[in-house]
């Protein structure tokens, strides 16, 4: 790896970290196409690198959210049972699929995600938040922006668990965090405030990723040079993204991101 290539991979990781922090996602949907299309890394190695960078994103952000009490640990752990099982199965399955098949599945996934992000940004809606003290899982946190304590109870846990096994499976299979699936489901189906859903997802994605990271490692797909360079970039980028988040309009960023992933999906598909 030349110094120029190292810097380019670090830069890609930094952009991934910024996007991850701004959009509340692991960033695999940006990093994997860049590594495959931009740097010619085999698909399995790109997925393995992405899985490890997700751990970095999660570790950098989760401790802050847990300390502030925004992450709902009990909910996260309940969903994590299904997610880790899904991730291990996804990791094993991915290693039996040829690289080009995995690439096409990833491209289809990108197109679906672009559609979901477009829809979510246009509607800009949030589920009705309700509090029932008798519910199995409840949560509360202090919202600094709204200057009030938000209380909520978790509804339809089995539905969220079902979505979690799908998110975990896609995480293991495609090297993504799965936040794009978990966060909307937690918010729209289980009635969890968006902030708590994002923070809980951040707590979860690292654990999910570690379950499949060992599988990718065992198959020899972990490229230490690309993975470490991307991780260093992600660590720097996520810090920058957290600061930029307050100043930039997330809707504009999302639209730019959607156009970007559509172009990349097209390139990976054909």
């Amino acid at each position: 790896m030349s110094p120029t290539l190292f810097l380019l991979v670090v830069l890609s990781g930094a952009v991934t970290g910024v996007l991850g922090a701004l959009l509340g996602i692991g960033g695999g949907i940006f990093l994997i196409p860049v590594l495959v299309v931009g740097f010619g890394l085999p698909m399995h190695q790109a997925v393995a690198a992405s899985v490890v960078t997700i751990i970095a994103t999660s570790s950098a952000t989760a401790s802050v959210y847990v300390d502030k009490g925004i992450s709902n640990i009990r909910l996260g752990m309940s969903l994590e049972v299904m997610t880790t099982i899904g991730a291990v199965l996804g990791g094993v399955t991915a290693n039996y699929l040829p690289g080009n098949a995995l690439q096409k599945i990833f491209a289809i996934f990108l197109l679906v995600m672009a559609g979901l992000m477009w829809n979510k940004t246009r509607k800009h809606g949030e589920a009705q938040i309700a509090y029932d003290a008798a519910a199995r899982i409840t949560g509360e946190y202090y919202d600094e922006a709204e200057k009030r304590t938000v209380r909520y109870s978790v509804r339809r846990l089995p539905a969220a668990m079902l979505a979690s096994i799908v998110a975990g499976n896609l995480s293991g299979l495609l090297g993504i965090g799965g936040g794009l699936i978990k966060v909307p489901v937690m918010n729209m189906v289980s009635g969890i405030p968006m902030k708590a859903a994002t923070a809980t997802s951040n707590f979860m994605i690292g654990v999910t990723a570690v379950a499949s990271a060992f599988i990718y490692f065992s198959y020899g797909h972990l490229n230490p040079l690309y993975t470490s360079a991307a991780v260093l970039g992600v660590l720097a980028g996520s810090q920058l993204g957290t600061r930029l988040g307050a100043k930039l309009r997330s809707r504009t960023i999302t639209y730019v991101f959607i156009v970007l992933i559509l172009v990349v999906a097209g390139r990976m598909m054909f």
Binding site: I55, S58, S59, I73, G206, V210, P224, V231
Partner: peptide, 26 residues
């Protein structure tokens, strides 16, 4: 160099596991 790089990756992979142990202990 690969010893340090792999050690860094493994340290990172152990972080969520350590967090799980702390959660379980709580």
């Amino acid at each position: 160099p690969f010893v340090s790089l792999y050690a860094g990756i493994f340290a990172l992979m152990l972080t969520p596991i350590l967090r799980l142990f702390i959660t379980g202990w709580t």
